[in-house]
Design a protein around this nucleic acid. Structure first.
Lengths: 233, 233
DNA sequence: CAAATTAACTTGTAATTACAAGTTGAAAAT
DNA sequence: ATTTTCAACTTGTAATTACAAGTTAATTTG
């Protein structure tokens, strides 16, 4: 396969930033230095750097250089946040049903392209717990396109985003989300271990990725009693 | 003033798209044509077009051309969307309490800077109705900084965003939002004309603007029975 | 010594050239 | 008439050159 030089350089530099070779606040090598070390010309280097700026990995300063930044990831995507207590330590992911190949629901929560409909659907149900208390009940839907070995993977306590990024080179580029407040009933109340008619949040989300025409979807029920859904934009 | 050629071209083309000279779906003149008509070279044209792509005004297709698109504005900000019926026509805004100067709640829903706390608060309560049915109950909090005549303005059926943009040159740049599902009680149930204990959505939002150190806030209760909160990211 | 200058960096803008690669429709072959 | 081929578009990638303009630190000047 033929990968453009600026894309190669871009992923090399991004890798160096992500692995910590270049740390936050560091000055990246100058454009001319990068030209020499990677044997390309300045327009090519600049194309790679512009991508990094766009993604938030660096900030450029006229006359000074490129400074490494931490990209504020998942902007706009709502994610969990503790209301008061510390969060992050005791987050668990429990698999209810492992990924399996199924038909798309009809009608589906979002409009599907012909390609997506024809390729079928990989479905998967998970619960997220904080301090052993269930907070999310999430159903994920992925089109069954070039995801070899996906169903065999172990998702227990692993991030779907990271797995898609690491093993399939798929990054989230954007998407659409819809929110409703509903009351917990039957299965959902059971999974979230709350009483019937308690208010919960229902979030339907479409994720558009870096892989052309590849989107995936999720339907998520959240008990917002102790934690909120929050996000930057 | 010295404005780069690619920026000039960029704003010319953006203007043409916004005024409708190039409509959605139209094919933009080719890069070489733009070179001739604007008397610049292709790298310059491409730089201008790349900006337009980044902003969502056009999509480029290898071998084909640049197709005009409508940028999905207010990305990340959740806004109202009808579930089925047509929306947009029958949206009303009703003022519950006109803007008035008050003290900030303590504690406030977001952390405030010293400047904000000292300047005091402009408070305002509104209800949004669709087809005469209340959907939002919204309290807005603005720091009382350089907003001369704000309390005297008429907000009935007017967009706060547009007023801030038009009369004060303030544009929304980003922000943070938090979501919870709760049950309607007392005042809120009354304003939204729903029964007690019905599930509603509570959204707390901080808006960061183009004016340095100027942010404003809102607390919003939404009946998501017939309409959802939705947004792109 | 302190201030001003300058030289040596940095990124920003821009023209020029060349070829690769996807798209489309007209011309040629079947 | 239908298919195939191809020429004429389009955008994508990349090297080269040149100068403008912001930043920094060493050097010169007062």
């Amino acid at each position: 396969m033929k990968i453009p030089l600026y894309k190669k350089l871009h992923s090399i530099l991004r890798e160096h930033i992500m692995t910590g070779l270049y740390k936050e606040g560091d000055l990246l090598p100058s454009e001319n230095e990068l030209c020499v070390t990677h044997n390309v010309t300045r327009p090519t280097v600049r194309q790679a750097l512009n991508e990094l700026v766009r993604e938030g990995y660096i900030n450029k300063h006229h006359g000074k250089g490129s400074i490494v930044a931490i990209p504020s990831k998942e902007a706009g995507i709502l994610s969990l946040q503790g209301t008061s207590s510390a969060i992050g330590k005791e987050l668990q992911t429990k698999i209810i049903t492992k990924p399996y190949i199924a038909k798309w629901d009809d009608p589906f929560i979002f409009e599907l392209s012909k390609d997506e409909r024809e390729s079928g659907c990989i479905k998967m149900e998970r619960i997220r717990l904080i301090n052993d208390v269930p907070v999310f009940y999430e159903t994920t839907f992925l089109p069954n396109m070039n995801l070899s070995g996906f169903c065999q993977r172990n998702f227990e306590n692993k991030s779907l985003f990271k797995i898609l990024s690491k093993y399939y080179g798929i990054e989230i580029r954007g998407g659409r989300q819809r929110l409703r407040a509903i009351t917990a009933q039957g299965t959902i109340a059971k999974y979230l271990q709350i009483k019937k008619n308690k208010p919960i949040l229902h979030l339907e989300r479409k994720m558009v990725t870096s892989k052309t025409n590849f989107s995936f979807y999720c339907s998520l029920y959240c008990n917002t009693n102790h934690y909120t859904l929050s996000g930057d934009f």
